[in-house]
Simulated assay, not measured.
Amino acid sequence: MVGIRRTFRYWSSRDSPSRARKAVRNAVLAWEFGDDIADVAELLTSELATNAVIHATDGREYAVDVLVSDGYLTVGVTDFGHGLPHAQHCRDDDEHGRGLAMVKDLADASGYERVPGGGKCVFFRLRVPAIPQHIRERESHCLGGQEHDHNAGHDTGIAHSVTRSGRRLVRARLRFGW
């Protein structure tokens, strides 16, 4: 499976979800998937990134991976907190707690994976059209002439995060198709 991937890393801060959603939106628009897909991807990324900042109290950073492969856009937000995501039961007048339910409703698929060593990756998938050839060529050029080939070992689905001091926080094989 050949795909295109971008990874963004953020320090957990009040304004980082805004930067994450803009980065995902810009990637989706650069791949020419249109405003409708960009709008949904932006909204769902904002929910997952905000959850990473608010609920992953053990983490000081998180990563956002954006992958297009096999007709799907997959966005995963990896944080290093120990808690696992769970949907909340909300009343009509509750101001918070609907994010994961919204992700489930708007995405074609969603879920999470535990990350060995602590943490998790929460993800969603949206069906997208085929990547136009000129986009493949442009992205391939940006990668030094190689697209990510997930079966040939160029990108084996291993996620990395490194602190400013260079200490590796996580090295995990993600099982949901990355």
Results as ranks from 00 to 15, higher is better:
R138V: 08
A20G: 04
A109W: 05
G34H: 08
D36H: 07
G81P: 04
E139D: 13
R5S: 09
R114D: 06
I4M: 09
C142S: 15
T74W: 00
H154A: 10
R98F: 12
R91N: 04
W178Y: 12
S110C: 14
G81C: 08
N26G: 01
R21A: 01
L44Q: 13
H150S: 08
H154K: 14
V115D: 00
T45G: 01
A107F: 02
F123W: 14
T50C: 00
L169Y: 00
I135F: 07
V64S: 06
A52T: 09
I131F: 05
P17Y: 08
G81A: 06
G83L: 10
V40A: 11
G111F: 12
R136V: 09
V64P: 05
T57A: 10
D94R: 14
R164A: 03
E47S: 09
H82C: 03
V40R: 15
W11R: 06
A23I: 05
S165G: 02
P129M: 02
T156G: 05
L29R: 03
R175F: 00
G99L: 04
P116E: 12
G119C: 10
P85D: 07
D105W: 15
V28K: 06
G144C: 09
C142F: 12
H154S: 14
H89W: 07
S165N: 05
M1G: 01
E32K: 09
Y62D: 06
E61S: 10
V103H: 01
A38S: 13
Y10D: 11
T57R: 13
T45Y: 10
N151L: 14
S140Q: 14
H86K: 14
F176L: 11
E95W: 07
D15L: 15
I135Y: 06
E42H: 08
E113K: 02
Q146L: 13
G83Q: 02
R19H: 15
H89A: 06
E47W: 12
T57Y: 12
G145K: 08
R167P: 00
S13M: 13
H141M: 10
T7R: 15
A101R: 15
A52C: 11
S69H: 08
T78G: 00
H134V: 08
N51M: 04
L106G: 07
V2I: 08
E139A: 15
A107P: 00
T7S: 14
C142V: 12
C142Y: 13
S13D: 11
W178F: 11
I131D: 01
L48Q: 12
D35F: 02
T156F: 01
G76P: 01
Y62I: 13
V128H: 07
C121N: 04
S46R: 15
S16R: 13
D105M: 15
K120T: 03
R91I: 03
V64G: 01
A130N: 04
E61K: 05
N151S: 11
R60V: 03
N51E: 04
E139P: 10
L174V: 03
Q133K: 06
S46H: 12
A20D: 08
I131V: 11
G119R: 15
S13A: 14
G97M: 14
P116F: 08
A107C: 02
A107T: 02
H134W: 02
R25C: 04
E139G: 13
D15F: 15
Y10W: 07
F33L: 06
R138H: 11
